[in-house]
């Protein structure tokens, strides 16, 4: 049986320049807030995939940093928090894996939480320090992919949202 997932309802993008003019390049923090994911019912136990399309907008950062900041040279996920919406909680799932994908960039797994702490509404994922993800930020768009390993079948949809924070170096 197949279920299609609807997603990507709203993005609130806040780009804040935290620091600049480091010795090796200019740094900035890029935040993706309230990225929405909807795993539509019926759901089955096992890994269920959902994804959100995210249009990148670095114009504010680049403007702040000046003309030197043309290309992202390195990027690191520094924070990834997944929120269970409505009455759902971490009790539903065994694990969550976060990946980034792009049409012109190779998919990269960037964070995982396994197992999930019981009875929580939010999950802090453990981010990879080695995943090479700079190239995603030189594209116009990327996909944020969540693999949610559900413990049991579920008859109602599951809504999640994600707050992600990346450190970019130009």
């Amino acid at each position: 049986m197949k279920i299609s997932t609807l997603l990507s309802i709203s993005f609130f993008l806040i780009a804040i320049v935290l620091s600049s003019c480091g010795g090796s390049g200019k740094k900035a923090t890029y935040k993706i807030e309230k990225a929405s994911f909807n795993l539509e019912a019926p759901l089955f136990s096992g890994a269920n995939s959902t994804q959100a399309e995210h249009k990148l907008d670095l114009s504010a950062i680049k403007k702040e940093l000046g003309t030197d900041a043309s290309e992202v040279k390195s990027a690191k996920l520094i924070k990834a928090v997944i929120y269970f919406q409505d009455s759902a909680s971490t009790d539903l799932a065994n694990s969550i894996v976060l990946s980034l994908a792009g049409d012109k960039v190779d998919m990269a797994q960037v964070a995982v939480a396994n197992p999930l702490e019981a009875g929580k509404k939010e999950v802090i994922l453990k981010g990879s320090s080695e995943a090479e993800i700079a190239e995603f930020f030189n594209q116009a768009m990327m996909y944020i992919v969540l693999d949610v390993d559900l413990k049991n079948d579920k008859e109602s949809s599951l809504k999640l949202s994600a707050n992600l924070e990346f450190e970019l170096e130009f």
């Binding site: 049986m1 197949k2 279920i3 299609s4 997932t5 609807l6 997603l7 795993l39 539509e40 759901l43 089955f44 136990s45 096992g46 890994a47 269920n48 995939s49 959902t50 994804q51 399309e53 996909y143 079948d153």
Partner: peptide, 12 residues
């Protein structure tokens, strides 16, 4: 493709 992988009944 809608870029939405279908959810899986893994037991299937």
């Amino acid at each position: 493709t809608n870029n939405q992988p279908a959810e899986e009944d893994f037991s299937q």
